[in-house]
Write a protein that binds this DNA or RNA. Structure first.
Lengths: 383, 383
DNA sequence: TTGAAAGCGCTAACAC
DNA sequence: GTGTTAGCGCTTTCAA
């Protein structure tokens, strides 16, 4: 077998030399050949056309090391003629580095996450990285699958909104040396850089506002219990009640169990839950702690004949396109800042920095519109 | 240099044998070593631990070829012990196939596109593919960059909503042998599988409805001119006017020029445009042909003191979360079907099928709510 | 400044 | 059924 190898070793330089001496095929022929294959031109073909070695092509194109000006020009021309673009897969395999970041969000249809995604993408691009986005639909299996894919794809770093504070398995990434930043939610099973908003405080302020407006029976709708955001937002609610010496009524605390991005299901479920609370526990106000639950909640109001900001005061978490139009008082999260911070934390780790994990908490802003008031209106004046 | 090579050639089997004879390091040691490196375990390490060749590991894990049961078990155990997961980069480089699809959408914050993205991802997953999502913000440069990245990343296929019907450069992908499907918009520069909705017809029906409601001065707001959707939707509007023998008033046709995903800018611009139309051209109704333009338009109504479905009838393209609550009559696109169709067309080409390009047009559904009516209400009854 | 050669981690063709 | 080896396309020593 060594003989075999030797044979090839001797044969190879020979072939190359012969080809070179005989003159290379020329751009046109090479181009035709490539078009026919309908595959990417390789560095080898560029080298052949430019009459240099692949190493020189690599150097000329990357500018990593000095190359003779004429040679560089010839390489550039050849690469251009063939429409050459370096194969990232090969490059990344060779260099063991990647300029792609992964972002796994738990709901592509949630405006909060899409806003984060957009801003993150921008920050990544500003730093020369591309960002690929995956949607876990808050499903642990899907999340795990994407984690696996991105790790196997050798991304440089990962941003994640964990579907479950305990069960999310980011260790596949960590074990592969891929740094991970958690956004919007904490992860209890790993010590990660985490970017959050002041969930408890935000809801606290919302309840304060409602109480100031004269509300005493404040209902709250929170998402599934296995995320830290739900727990924190509920805590803010409770703290506020305590502050105002309002006894807690368990009937006013509603947990949605729907998970996953199915808008229709969530809408129906939410509508049912809120309808029940309104009918059974006569709240005078409502805090909705999750953007995707807003539509269903408002549908419940309509169904039960309640009027937003008149006989039922409402504050919601997350801003959305039509919030302004219908006067929805909203807790607005600084999505750009969150995303930027997350990407920056990530990139500093990608660059090799290993400080103890940070936890960055951003303040959210309570944008007061009309829905959070209790204007008693005479029935006749209502349309 | 051949000598050098020979030396290595001889040395290599020796080392391996020595190691093997001396007994492999054992899972614990190997694991420790890997943890310390904080890098992925490689197939080589698994092979070493299982006491077999890398080829056997590959075969045992992929199941591509029969492997002795004991050996397979040992391999499985070793791979599990080391937390081994095949490096996709290397695999894809070697096999020249990839199981990743790319989806480039023009606006992550547009519910239509996110709905498409979600459904596409699902269909891809059902077929054993993962989908990575990129956001071009309708920016040709960004789109091009992502096209480049995904091609260089060797994705198996691409779905795209072209930012510009003429300038989008999908040929980088096509030249690399990567099939491309266009969604939502046509691309004039290449012959692609394309999945669309009946834009013209949908708007036509919307105008019909408004005219039936008694409207005569129907204003229309369309997006930037360089997409085929804008043109088609405008055509639907014009056809409808012709049908009803209503003369066209150029003042009632508004083109938004804002492109890119900046929600705030678009909101402001739209609001300004609609305010002007209302003030200067007194429309009695309004067709908004793009989801992201809805919020700004409604803000303009509020500003000019108009009331939705009372003194101004409105129909919008694209459904959105709060549309139901505010009674917005909407042209709803079958996003799931669109996405599924697109992925299936793409995968059939990925699989090697090369029929002439398809164009699939889906019907949209006009969901009639209250905003499309003209109920004259006495001022006193309005709240 | 340039080229030859090795090698990233994997799979497949070929031997046995 | 298993091992050896070559090679995917690229970058990067090492030599010259």
């Amino acid at each position: 077998m060594i003989g075999n190898r030797l044979h090839k070793l001797r044969a190879l330089p020979g072939t190359v030399k012969t080809r070179r001496l005989r003159g290379h095929p020329g751009a046109a022929a090479l181009k035709r050949r490539i078009a026919k294959r309908s595959e990417m031109a390789t560095i080898k073909e560029v080298a052949q056309l430019a009459g240099v070695s692949t190493a020189t092509v690599s150097r000329a194109l990357s500018g990593a090391r000095p190359v003779n000006a004429d040679v560089a020009a010839r390489v550039l021309e050849a690469s251009h003629a063939l429409g050459y673009r370096p194969n990232r897969v090969a490059r990344s395999l060779r260099t063991q580095v990647s300029t792609t970041l992964g972002l796994i969000i738990s709901d592509v249809q949630n405006p909060f996450f899409t806003a984060v995604a957009r801003a993150a993408e921008r920050t990544a691009a500003d730093n020369g990285y591309s960002l690929v986005l995956c949607n876990s639909d808050d499903d642990l299996h899907l999340e795990r699958r994407y984690l696996d894919v991105l790790v196997a794809e050798q991304v440089a770093g990962l941003i994640l909104t964990p579907a479950d504070e305990k069960a999310s398995s980011v260790d596949v990434a960590l074990a592969a040396g891929i740094p991970v930043v958690s956004v919007d939610r904490r992860l209890r099973t790993a010590d990660l850089d985490t970017v959050l908003v002041d969930n408890a405080h935000a809801v606290h302020k919302a309840v304060d506002l409602l109480v100031r407006e004269g509300c005493r029976r404040v209902a709250v709708l929170v998402g599934p219990e296995h995320t830290t955001t739900a727990a924190e937002r509920l805590r803010g609610y409770r703290d506020a009640l305590t502050d105002h010496q309002i006894p807690e009524d368990p009937g006013l605390i509603v947990h949605s169990q729907v998970t996953g991005g199915d808008v229709a299901t969530l809408h129906k479920e939410t509508k049912g839950l809120i309808t029940e609370v309104i009918r059974e526990h006569s709240p005078d106000s409502l805090v909705i702690t999750n953007g995707p639950m807003i539509a269903g909640s408002l549908a419940a109001l309509a169904d039960t004949g309640r009027h937003l900001g008149e006989d039922l005061a409402v504050v919601v978490f997350d801003d959305m396109p039509l919030a302004e139009f219908i006067g929805l008082t909203s807790i607005v999260q600084p999505t750009e800042a969150i995303a930027q911070q997350a990407v920056e934390l990530l990139l500093s780790r990608v660059a090799g920095s290993t400080p103890p994990p940070h936890e960055v908490v951003f303040k959210s802003v309570l944008t007061i519109r009309t829905s959070s008031s209790l204007r008693r209106v005479s029935p006749g004046r209502r349309r």
